[in-house]
Design a protein around this nucleic acid. Structure first.
Lengths: 218, 218
DNA sequence: AATTGTGAAGCATTTCACAGCT
DNA sequence: AGCTGTGAAATGCTTCACAATT
């Protein structure tokens, strides 16, 4: 047995709780109920309680959750309390934007290395991080203890990048390339595919209710 | 009754099928089986058959699916066959990258308008599309028949942008801002939150297995 | 009195297994 | 003979309802 059966969907909600808790903490609210968290996050109070209960009993019955304490606990659960290092591969349009965004906003998940094959880019910096050639990827990731890889290269090169990242010790990959990565057991891949998002969104538009099947009335 | 009960997850797989079908078509493969599609997409053959069956019987028993026909059918289902117009709000780092990416890759979902509040940006172009002020948003979206809105502004402005897009007739929104949008019934919102993705990814890393609970062995 | 934590019920989605076509 | 289309079973996630606790 490997994992204690916690749904991925629950893990994805934890950062939302973290964000809202920080807002409460900034407003100097010491205690919140699951109902208040639900109000702000859009999830149901039961779901929030269940998500938190997967990891232990963090609240006080009849009272609620201590904002500062819960915030720290969630940080710990996600492994953010010590800081996590990430490497970005691909400094094109999207990669560049991601680097600027991430480096300016995130302190807990930090991009410590950027790689790109374009000789014109190698040696230049993005917000203080120097762009290096892929040949250095494995060694730099190993040396720096990089845990997360971000792939922002064309689909044709995505698999090769993933292989390098994994050789460098990366255990989780955020993949923006429109490609299905093959990775060994134990490596987690999260895909974000803009084409899929945009094309599937079209379905929820009246444009998809084709003219010739106007059967189902309102 | 509104929707014929098709899972959102199934809708999200359709663009993947579309992409792989185009690859087969480019390789002049006229017929594919669900097993072959499974091989390339990573989804199971049964799931693929079930997904397609939600919309009708597109295959031939004993044979497989006609690549060209199925590709056209999926395009039609998603509403991509006529082309879908999208508007981007926010031309900062991320918005700019999204615009360049989307305008260069997508023909079926086309960004026809870009809006930003920054006076320095208004009037400039991204790949041939002029950046306009938010004051023109509602009218331009109405006039152009924009169906999809893409929000790439700071969280504090996201709700206001959503309201404008909806006033402009947009029915589906791709939201990159870290904010929970409140939208009327019938408007579909898809969130992509980089912070959530990165922070949740950290969980799948050995960094999250905290030192003090090294109980569960391999 | 109020709110958490949780087994059980309820839904939704995926997988199975096979009948039905070609 | 082979592969699709589909009810039924299995699985996984969410909601419910309430006991436990402060």
């Amino acid at each position: 047995m490997r994992k204690p059966k916690i749904p991925d969907a629950a893990i994805k909600r934890l950062p939302v709780y973290l964000r809202v808790l920080e807002e409460f903490r900034a407003a100097e609210v010491p205690i919140v109920s699951s109902a208040e968290l639900a109000e702000r996050t859009g999830f149901s109070p039961e779901q929030i309680r269940k998500d938190l209960a997967y990891f232990g009993a963090f609240g006080t019955r009849g009272v609620g959750y201590d904002t500062a304490l819960l915030s720290r606990r969630i940080s710990r659960i996600l492994g953010l309390d010590q800081g996590v290092k990430a490497a970005l591969v691909g400094a094109g349009n999207l990669g560049h934007a991601l680097a600027r965004y991430s480096l300016s906003k995130h302190k807990d998940v930090r991009i410590v290395a950027i790689f790109d094959a374009d000789p014109a880019k190698i040696g230049t910096e993005i917000m203080g991080v120097t762009i290096r050639p892929p040949s250095e990827l494995v060694e730099v990731c190993r040396r720096e203890g990089v845990r997360i890889g971000i792939i922002a290269v064309p689909a044709s090169e995505a698999q090769a990048c993933a292989d390098l990242l994994i050789a460098g010790g990366v255990e989780a990959i955020l993949n923006f390339a429109p490609a299905k990565l093959k990775v060994p057991e134990g490596v987690f891949v999260q895909n974000i595919d803009l084409t899929i998002e945009l094309q599937s969104l079209a379905y929820y538009t009246s444009a998809s209710q084709s003219e010739d099947e106007v059967s189902r009335a309102e």
